[in-house]
Design a protein around this nucleic acid. Structure first.
Lengths: 153, 153
DNA sequence: ATAACTGCAAACGTTTTGCCAGCAT
DNA sequence: ATGCTGGCAAAACGTTTGCAGTTAT
């Protein structure tokens, strides 16, 4: 799955994106992308850094930040502000809903539809042109509830 | 309206909260609370600081941060992470939906119901105990659309 | 040769913290 | 006297940026 996505990415880079701004897929950038697709969690920049470092020990945190920015503005990953002090990144670029544990900071995807909001309605009422949305539930995860619950999705 | 809320606050402080942790309502804290209730926007800590400073010129930014923290953990205001680099604060403590302009950073309330999510369902599916949620739409505000639209709520 | 890229370190903006003094109880 | 509080300044934290050298085209 990961491999497929990366191949698609490279195809895209070889096609549209590359022709626009000469975006290259360096081994650092690829490793960062792989890491996020692999993890399937919602890592912070530093978490990505720690993982990528195991493969590329000389990579710098600045490079990670730079590439996270590039990858997310290219639409290959998503930058999600989930409420904590750090930005988080998500390999899943489709609209979905998150839930964050207020105690341990863990973040999961929520198996539910994005808000039922008719975007047209919102545009009419607010005057805004809607681009997207970010819905985060806050709660206490099964583990933090006292080892009593079962694991979330 | 503001006065009423503040009076309620003081009554609360004189009752429940005070008896628990000796929380006092200093003039700085009151000014900060007033400011947020007055503004009816979603100010950053620094915006609160700039406004409060006009009444209490010697107040320090540290004090503002300390009190924003105290007020929000007392439930008198709300700390809302709206996606930008700064935390924002909201005098309205009821669940509602925000929209943020991706260009100018302006934040408005959205005249719609919070997500239609059955919280019970979410709890069952995810295993989390739900405490709250935060929904933020991203868009372009009427002003940034090129002075063509009308003002939002 | 050119332009994108990396590593490093310094800088930046936001938020937190330590310290001492002030004030309410 | 105790302890919550404020002002000030330093520190911490996440993130961005400038620069010099490297790599790919």
């Amino acid at each position: 799955m990961k491999a497929i996505l990366v191949m698609i990415t490279i195809m895209i880079l070889g096609g549209n994106l590359l022709s626009k701004n000469q975006l290259r897929m360096s081994k650092q950038r690829l490793a960062i992308l792989n890491t996020i697709l692999d993890l399937r969690s919602h890592p912070t920049a530093d978490e990505v850094y720690q993982v990528v470092r195991q493969k590329l020990p000389r990579i710098s945190l600045g490079t990670v930040y730079r590439n996270l920015e590039i990858l997310s503005s290219s639409g290959m990953i998503r930058k999600v502000p989930l409420g904590g002090p750090q930005m988080r990144f998500d390999g899943c670029t489709e609209d979905h809903v998150h839930i964050r544990c207020i105690q341990c900071g863990r973040v999961d995807d929520l198996p539910m539809d994005p808000p039922n909001t008719r975007e047209g309605d919102i545009q009419k009422k607010s005057g805004y042109r809607i681009i997207g949305h970010c819905t985060v539930f806050i709660g206490i995860c099964p583990v933090c509830q006292g080892e009593g619950g079962d694991e979330a999705a």
